[in-house]
Simulated assay, not measured.
Amino acid sequence: MAINKEWHRSHRMPQKATREQRVAWHAAHVAACCCREIPLSIRPDVLKLRESRRKP
């Protein structure tokens, strides 16, 4: 899996990120980079958010 260094530089995870911030960050991350797995603890929420963004 290749890392998108530019995306990572411009999209830092906030320190002490809330669950909502983590979900949003990982949803964007999987679309832009996908260099690692989505953590199991938030995976259902990330997948739900990604699905909701795809539907019109």
Rank of each mutant, 00 (worst) to 15 (best):
E6V: 15
H11Q: 10
A31L: 13
R50N: 03
L47A: 03
M1G: 01
S52I: 00
N4G: 13
H29T: 07
T18I: 05
V46M: 06
K5L: 15
S10C: 11
L40A: 13
V23S: 03
L47W: 12
A27R: 07
H8K: 11
L49I: 05
R12I: 15
Q21M: 07
K55S: 09
C34A: 14
H11E: 08
I3W: 06
W7Q: 04
A28I: 01
C33E: 06
R22M: 10
A32K: 09
A28D: 11
N4V: 10
R22K: 15
S41T: 10
R54C: 06
R53K: 14
R12Y: 10
A2L: 13
E20K: 02
A31P: 00
H8V: 13
A24W: 08
W7L: 08
H29D: 06
C34Q: 13
K48T: 10
R12G: 12
V46D: 04
K55V: 13
I3T: 14
W25N: 09
E37P: 01
K5C: 07
R50H: 04
K48N: 10
M13S: 02
H8T: 04
H26C: 02
E51F: 04
M13P: 08
I42E: 11
R19V: 04
V23T: 06
V46T: 03
E51W: 08
A28C: 06
D45K: 05
L49Q: 09
T18F: 09
L40C: 03
H8E: 15
W25C: 04
A32H: 12
C35R: 02
R50I: 13
V46P: 03
C33K: 06
P44N: 01
V23Y: 07
S41N: 07
L40V: 12
L40Q: 01
P56T: 13
C34M: 08
C35L: 07
D45T: 03
A31Q: 12
H29N: 06
E51D: 09
I38Q: 00
S41G: 01
A27P: 01
C34P: 00
R9W: 12
A31S: 06
D45V: 00
Q21R: 06
A24K: 13
I42Q: 02
I38W: 05
R19I: 07
S41A: 07
L47N: 01
R36M: 13
W7K: 04
V46N: 01
T18R: 00
E6Q: 14
H8F: 14
A27Y: 04
V23Q: 00
W7A: 06
S10L: 14
R53S: 05
K55D: 12
P39D: 06
V23I: 15
S41K: 02
R53Y: 12
I3D: 08
C35H: 07
A24L: 06
